[in-house]
Amino acid sequence: MYIIAILGNFTILFIVTREPSLHRPMHYYLCMLAVNDLVLSTIIVPKTLSIFWFDSTETSFNACLTQMYFVHCFTVVESGILVAMAVDRYVAICHPLRHSTILTDRMVAKIGLALLLRGSTVVLPYPLLARQWLYCRTNIISHSYCKHIAVVTLACGDIRVSNYYGLFMMLFVAFVDMCFITASYTQIFRAIFSLRTMDARCKTFGTCSTQLCAILVFFIPDVVSSVIHRFDYIVPPHVLILIANVHLVVPSMLHPIIYGIRTKEIRDRLLWVFTHKKI
Rank of each mutant, 00 (worst) to 15 (best):
Ala191Asn: 06
Thr210Trp: 04
Val235Tyr: 01
Tyr135Ser: 04
Cys146Thr: 12
Leu212Met: 11
Ile241Met: 06
Val250Ala: 14
Pro221Glu: 03
Phe180Gly: 07
Ser144Arg: 06
Asn245Arg: 03
Ile192Asp: 00
Ala155Phe: 00
Asp199Arg: 13
His148Tyr: 15
Ala200Gly: 13
Gly206Phe: 03
Phe193Arg: 14
Phe189Ala: 12
Gly157Ser: 13
Cys202Glu: 14
Leu248Ile: 12
Ala200Ile: 11
Leu195Lys: 04
Thr210Asp: 07
Arg230Ala: 11
Ala191Trp: 01
Ala244Cys: 12
Ser162Trp: 03
Trp133Ile: 11
Lys147Gly: 14
Tyr145Gly: 05
Ala200Val: 08
Pro125Ser: 02
Val224Asn: 03
Ala214Lys: 04
Val217His: 01
Met170Gly: 15
Phe175Pro: 07
Val223Tyr: 09
Val250Trp: 07
Ile243Ala: 09
Leu124Ala: 10
Pro125Trp: 05
Leu212His: 05
Cys156Thr: 14
Ile228Cys: 12
His238Ala: 08
Val223Pro: 03
Ala200Asp: 15
Val151Leu: 14
Gln132Cys: 09
Ile215Tyr: 00
Ala130Arg: 03
Leu134Gln: 15
Ala130His: 00
Met170Trp: 13
Lys147Ser: 14
Met198Leu: 13
Phe175Glu: 09
Gly206Val: 00
Ser225Lys: 12
Val223Arg: 08
Gly206Asp: 07
Val123Ser: 09
Pro125Phe: 00
Ser162Arg: 02
Ile234Thr: 07
Thr210Val: 06
Pro237Cys: 01
Asp232Glu: 10
Ser225Arg: 13
Asp232Trp: 09
Leu212Cys: 06
Ile188His: 05
Ile140Val: 15
Val235Asp: 02
Thr207Pro: 01
Pro127Ala: 02
Ala155Arg: 00
Tyr185Lys: 02
Asn163Gly: 15
Leu124Gln: 06
Leu154Arg: 07
Met169Ile: 14
Leu171Trp: 12
Arg137His: 13
Pro237Ile: 10
Trp133Phe: 15
Cys179Gly: 10
Ser252Gly: 14
Pro127Met: 05
Ile215Glu: 07
Ser142Cys: 11
Asp199Val: 09
Lys203Phe: 08
Ile234Gln: 07
Asp177Met: 10
Tyr135His: 02
Tyr135Asn: 03
Pro236Ser: 04
